[in-house]
Write a protein that binds this DNA or RNA. Structure first.
Lengths: 351, 351
DNA sequence: GCAATAAGAGAAAACGTTTTCCCAACTAGG
DNA sequence: CCTAGTTGGGAAAACGTTTTCTCTTATTGC
């Protein structure tokens, strides 16, 4: 019965240091030292060992090294963002910063499930990760795991941290300031704010910065419109803002790009031109949305890849034994200019 | 100078089997056997060892186990999809299928960079992953890595496989059939196809299935319109299809959801109703797009999560020593009904 | 020519497990 | 009472490295 099954691929045993040593006619100790630039031996011996290692295709077994060094060169990346809009750039930044240090990343999707979270954390601990980065889809929600008393360094990035932890989040107030200030400089006088539900902390943070920036600039505050993070809400909000006898806005700062998309479409449908009649700025700079609006959407970018890189580097230094002061670090946003705001009257530009 | 730096967190050494054994007054051998249900000893001894292990919070060091068993319970996941639309569901499916087997996943983003690919593959090999899953954003493109002669099992999922490899891809022809056949059953007579660039293999595969299905049903074939994967192209295509004196389509099968979005918007702008005047079906079932169109978009879903699960399970069985016949397995798509096609005249439904 | 030093290389311990083999102490059978 | 078998448990090897220590041989200084 075993004669006509497809051939089982044969996986040869990896070549070990012992093989190299035997082939080169030295002891494993010497072989190890030759390859690691340690110990004393003739240049000839060292070269010979290296040559045989190369020719045999020797690669040291990381498991053995890790066991000995008590350092696995791996970290765990916990996330509950299956959706990916936020975690993808974040993950990519984290991964970038680590791969150069030879550190590999375990991807752990914990959803909202504490059991899954526990499972993954234990697996990471058992595999002796050097540290853990916790990531999420919301700054104001905890992952369904307790990382507060682990024996390894933990960094939080774009998720609610435990007290006394090291955390990186975006500076949402700064992002809002960037948007509103930009409108002000362009000479917009009635700037509205259409954003997400009150249950999100960032909604309040940005709304507060929105108000403050308007007041700074001596402009009227239109009470922010809270709704959902959807295109449909963008449509609705335009109806509320523009079906009025009073003065209508000449700019709308939106809480995310989907709302902005809805706003732009709704404005066009009622014959208002963007950016001429109304300027629009979004948030998140989700390219797939921001580049598809007509005109393309100027939007606040949270620099999540940079945030991820920062988190990765900080974890690395923590793992290396350098202490980091606990606390939340807010990293600046940037405004990505497209065509939904119009140009500055003078020399500055908004392309 | 070291007196006023923040306190360095102290990371206590993990408790080892030796600690457990000492505490319980037995040898490590006995302790190991007690915890693994091996060997012979009194039930009392076994229980006592287990109790002390529990009370000490002992967790076996995976590195040591892996070294001995020559099996690390980790796999590498290679991808070049930073964008994430396809790889996220895929990754989530893969991860789901593996986590239950206690297998952790190394995330390796190789972009399009052979150097990065090489780097990651070597890191995986060094860390003695049990297998590798290669994933991409295109079925018809190779990752920038050579996995053809590795000493470990490799599975390809949603990317171009090497010959004689085991691969899983979506059945795009089947997906196209699903869409066109659905239109036919709804009584649509002139069904158009607006899709992406000719450089994509799936464009031809789907177009071919589109033609075949129309012919099967005795309907006229409108030559597929090839363009880009963008909303803008959806707009343009509508202009081409409907600015004509001849008969106009009553259904459009789109190559992805963004094109469909453009098509629906363009139809609305020229006063054509969806689904009454024209039915529209998209591809990819990207919820964020499909649910935001007005009306919500019926779309072909490639079941990527299921595909990922399948890939994960197959890798597991390969790692377990069971052979798998090489070749490309096409997994069926499914049609997700929303409101862009209208209902069947009779008893079937499209909700 | 002899001690002191340096150079080159190997032996062995260590990392934390698992597993095979072995040994002592019982138990049962005659 | 003596042997054969069973039971409970430990010693040691193994996985593949790195590192410390030791040993032999060559070189130098006087």
């Amino acid at each position: 019965m075993a004669s006509d099954v497809p051939p089982v691929p044969v996986f040869p045993k990896p070549v070990t240091l012992r093989d190299v040593a035997a082939q080169a006619g030295v002891s494993v100790a010497t072989a190890s030292k030759a390859l690691n630039d340690q110990g004393r031996m003739t240049a000839e011996t060292r070269e010979r060992i290296r040559d045989t290692a190369r020719s045999l295709g020797f690669r040291p077994n990381s498991l053995a090294q890790s066991l000995l060094r008590r350092r696995s060169f791996t970290v765990g990346l916990l996330t509950n963002d299956t959706y990916g809009r936020f975690s993808l750039p974040l993950m990519s930044g984290i991964s970038d910063s680590l791969v150069d240090a030879g550190v590999s990343v375990f991807l752990c999707n914990v959803e909202e499930d504490p059991r899954l979270g526990q499972l993954h954390v234990e697996a990471m601990l058992d595999k002796r990760v050097d540290g853990i980065i916790a990531t999420g889809k919301r700054i104001d929600r905890h992952l369904p795991v307790d990382l507060s008393s682990l024996r390894i360094p933990v960094i939080y990035a774009f998720t609610q941290p435990d007290p006394d932890a090291v955390a990186f989040v975006s500076d949402d107030a700064g992002g809002a300031w960037l948007a509103v200030e930009h409108f002000c400089r362009l000479g917009r006088k009635r700037i509205a704010h259409v954003t997400g539900p009150a249950s999100f902390a960032v909604v309040h943070e940005r709304a507060q910065a929105y108000r403050a920036t308007l007041i700074e600039n001596g402009l009227p505050v239109i009470e922010p419109l809270l709704g959902t993070w959807s295109e449909a809400w963008g449509h609705e909000a335009v109806a509320k803002l523009f079906d009025t006898n009073g003065e209508r806005p000449d700019a709308v700062f939106c809480g995310n790009d989907q709302i902005a998309r809805g706003v732009i479409d709704a404005l066009r449908e009622r014959g208002l031109g963007v950016p001429n009649d109304v300027g629009v700025i979004g948030f998140d700079n989700w390219e797939i949305v921001a580049e598809a609006t007509r005109p393309p959407l100027t939007s606040v970018d949270m620099n999540l890849a940079a945030l991820g890189r920062e988190a990765g580097l900080t974890l690395l230094s923590l793992v290396g034994g350098k202490p980091a002061t606990p606390g939340i670090r807010k990293l600046p946003c940037r405004l990505v200019m497209r065509q939904s705001c119009g140009r500055l009257p003078d020399d500055e530009k908004d392309g």
